[in-house]
Computed example of a mutant assay.
Amino acid sequence: MNTAFIGLDYIVDIMHPDGKIARSAAHAAARNVIENANRALAIAAQRDWLSVLVKVGFEPGYADLPARSPIFGRARELGALALNGPGTGFHPALDAHAANLVIVKPRVSAFYGTRLEAALRATRIERLVIGGVSTTWAVQATARDGHDRDYEICIVEDLCAAASDDEHERSIDTLRGIARIVTVDDLATL
């Protein structure tokens, strides 16, 4: 089955201890999310899957920032998620060069306002293997959008993190309704 690996928001502002809105940084570190993401990128290359890294960010001046959004509302005030700043750089330990494609998203879902779907259709992708931070927001939104576009969805549980174990587990339980939940060790046999 034609498969794409999609890694979501493995960026400094969101998941590095120095990030400006890094509520998930400690959980991601405790779960070895970056190490696991690097393993997933290597497996994707071995299996000849399309590898896509997606990051959220806004243009200088924040003209494309959704001002009424509670989740993004303080980004401008904090100087977070600015595409011209270091916060939207990938986590320094991530093997970002292993990805075939990098996509910038202006909202929570990797599909909204991006070229992701065109890339998936061009390469005849049927299955999305998704991991990212946070499980509650980017992973759920992208999985739901992918599901509704008729892709088979697999969530790589140990590539995901949230603000807490409880938040992460609740999200994974919810995702079971639309996705197969796997681990990075399962990727070699998908």
Rank of each mutant, 00 (worst) to 15 (best):
A63T: 13
I34P: 06
N36E: 02
R39W: 00
A37W: 00
Y151A: 03
V104H: 14
L41Q: 03
T135G: 13
P86I: 03
S171M: 00
T123P: 13
L41E: 01
A96C: 10
A96H: 10
D48E: 08
Q46E: 11
L78N: 12
R39H: 02
V139M: 15
A143K: 12
I130S: 14
E77D: 08
A98F: 01
D165V: 04
A119N: 12
T123R: 15
A122I: 08
D64I: 07
L116H: 00
A99Q: 06
A143E: 09
R68D: 14
P70G: 14
L83H: 04
L50A: 14
Q46M: 05
Q140F: 08
H91W: 05
L128N: 05
F58N: 14
R107L: 10
L41I: 02
A163P: 00
L81Y: 02
V54A: 15
R39S: 05
E169S: 10
L116F: 00
V108W: 01
H91Y: 07
R74N: 08
T136E: 09
R124W: 04
L83Q: 09
A75Q: 06
E35Y: 00
A98N: 06
Q46L: 06
Q140D: 10
L175E: 05
R74Y: 04
D95N: 12
I153R: 11
D95V: 02
A161S: 14
R39M: 02
E157R: 15
P66Y: 06
R124E: 13
P86F: 03
A162K: 08
V56T: 12
V56P: 01
I71W: 07
A138V: 00
Y62S: 11
A93G: 06
A82R: 04
C154D: 11
R144K: 10
A141R: 05
L120F: 11
P70V: 12
